[in-house]
């Protein structure tokens, strides 16, 4: 159980330590703080987007202990001691990840708002399944809505990335 302090209104504030993209951060949060808000507001990692806040669009997708989750549906307090990878942590230093490269090459994005979530979901798929079928790619990103691209170039990018892992 995370340690807590009680504020003047009697509301508990918990100290949590999360490992985000390889670094530990300790923050004091409320029990109802969402992971997406912890990342964006407290850690300034605004690459993770906030769209529907209902788990419908997937633009807030991050990896939690390697699994893709909607950060708007996860309580920050449940992430205490766990590892999170956001879009900012996908690339390896200066070098873009192959998924990022292929998104660029195939123009797998337009407005870019779905893209962080889309890339995280795609990367999570490839970590589990390095040679997915087209259907498996579509299934893996079915929870990531994109209004701009019709997914055509996204699917092409992910399949191409898989070929070049």
């Amino acid at each position: 159980m995370s340690s807590f302090v009680v504020d003047k209104d009697g509301i508990k504030r918990y100290a949590v330590t999360v490992n985000v993209n390889g670094s530990d951060y300790t923050k004091v949060i409320k029990a109802n703080t969402l992971l997406v808000n912890l990342l964006r507001d407290d850690l300034d990692l605004t690459g993770t987007k906030r769209g529907c806040e209902l788990g419908d669009c997937g633009c807030c997708t991050v990896m939690l202990d390697g699994n893709p989750v909607n950060a708007c549906l996860v309580l920050a307090i449940d992430c205490d001691g766990r590892e999170i990878t956001t879009i900012e942590g996908i690339q390896d230093g200066e070098d873009l990840d192959i998924v990022q490269e292929k998104f660029i090459e195939h123009a797998g994005f337009q407005c870019g708002f779905c893209t962080p979530g889309m890339i995280v979901s795609s990367r999570a798929l490839l970590n589990e399944n390095p040679s997915p079928t087209e259907y498996e790619v579509r299934e893996a990103i079915a929870g990531n809505l994109c209004r701009c691209t019709g997914y055509v170039n996204i699917v092409a990018a992910v399949l191409d990335a898989a070929e070049n892992l």
Binding site: Q100, F103, F109, G112
Partner: peptide, 10 residues
């Protein structure tokens, strides 16, 4: 670069 790395600001 910005849109694939999360650095693009909205």
């Amino acid at each position: 670069y910005g849109k694939t790395t999360g650095h693009a600001q909205y």
